[in-house]
Design a protein around this nucleic acid. Sequence first.
DNA 1: CGCCTACTTGACTTACTTCAAAAACAGTGG
DNA 2: CCACTGTTTTTGAAGTAAGTCAAGTAGGCG
Lengths: 251, 251
Amino acid sequence: MIFGGGMEKAHDVLIRNLCEHTALAPEEIAEIRSLTFTQRDFAPNENFVHQGDEPEHSALVVSGMVARYHLLGSGRRQYLAFHLSGDLPDSQSLFIDQMDHGLSALGQASVAFIPHRELFAAFRRRPNFALAVWRETLLDASIFREAITNNSARPMPARMAHLFCELFYRARAAQLVRSNRCRLPISLAQLGETLGMAIATVNRTLADLRQSGTMDLRDSELIVLKWRELQRLGDFTPAYLHLKRQSPPRL
Amino acid sequence: MIFGGGMEKAHDVLIRNLCEHTALAPEEIAEIRSLTFTQRDFAPNENFVHQGDEPEHSALVVSGMVARYHLLGSGRRQYLAFHLSGDLPDSQSLFIDQMDHGLSALGQASVAFIPHRELFAAFRRRPNFALAVWRETLLDASIFREAITNNSARPMPARMAHLFCELFYRARAAQLVRSNRCRLPISLAQLGETLGMAIATVNRTLADLRQSGTMDLRDSELIVLKWRELQRLGDFTPAYLHLKRQSPPRL
DNA sequence: CGCCTACTTGACTTACTTCAAAAACAGTGG
DNA sequence: CCACTGTTTTTGAAGTAAGTCAAGTAGGCG
């Protein structure tokens, strides 16, 4: 556990993220800044919330990526969503006692924990902050819906392209894209457990996408070379992300 | 539009549904009862909220079933979720201006509409009511997550069995099951657009499930004959529905 | 009765999975 | 620095499940 050092960053990324869709008044921002976080670093693929847990803290991604996943009766793992800095990957634990899924770090990740008790107190004092977090959970839901559609209705190449489009677009909104690159520390196996395809197919499909010259994935980094073309391949329409201030990437 | 007649029903089903997971105080219930609904009946497969709309009302399913769906670039339709009486199928429109999916009646359905304005006012007077609706949206999200897993990680027969398990279990919680039957006015084509399978496969898979003697689907009615066995086939664990008061069906 | 829609069935084709093995790569210790 | 281990990625070949196509049947309704 690390208290103190680098803690301002946690408040900043949360405020940045909430401001993406909600106008926050100065006193609401002050309220957020007064929250006490407990920050921890996790190794790649380290699990820090398990299916069945009943957490008393909510997690906030400070840096790196966090994944949510289901474990099936068969032992199979299904990734449900990926979270970037500023996201609250288990805000639902505020109201739903038992976790129906787990959380893990995707690459190296830094996560801040906020006691539910404190969040509830802040909600009471600043209802608008509660509404912003509520909205945030609704955006999650809209990303889940798109994942249902992606994994059920789109052919494999489009499915993979769509995932890359979404992650790139969101990374961009979180200011994590520099010269058309963003971190994406995901293995082929995990890509398969996300998109519902066998690892061999993941590899071949990814090879095709690379071949198309629209993107590349190297050294845990996603590189977008032809945005419009990749977007077309993935049937990607960013409306469901409900980002107001975002302009589409050039290229 | 029907004002008045049968309107008490709308309040009742909403209260019943929220009480499933939240303890409501008498004054909160009174607040809900004071909401003015506008009730409308819809024909099977009638769409009443479209992708791209910016609704100023939230829908409440009073009777029948309501579906949420995506329309893809290819013209394909993907069903995302089904809602039973008491559900608020577009509560996210309270905070997310533009609909990223549509709503349609599955069979004949009766839907009540509540102006956002009124809901917000009620939220302000009774914050606990807001929290109950928030929780409701989080339960939706958990159903979405399970749908991702179902359609991505489970083989077709399990996938279909799981859907039936979920709908039956939820119908049971909503007191819509009588002698192991509940209404399910869904066509094979729609089942395919839900589970991501071709209609021929839907038919053959359904035939296998019938063959197994665990369930039947006839005259828009789902009949569960061997619950435990169907649950096993579908790898169904109801934890994700977070229903506190529910005991498992006998059989 | 005839029309339309929903369901059913069969034959064929293709996508994807599975299995297996090799190559590339990262980390460890000599 | 280089063998040694384990992991991830790549590739190939074979098998199979699911999609497509097409035709036929059954049920509901004017």
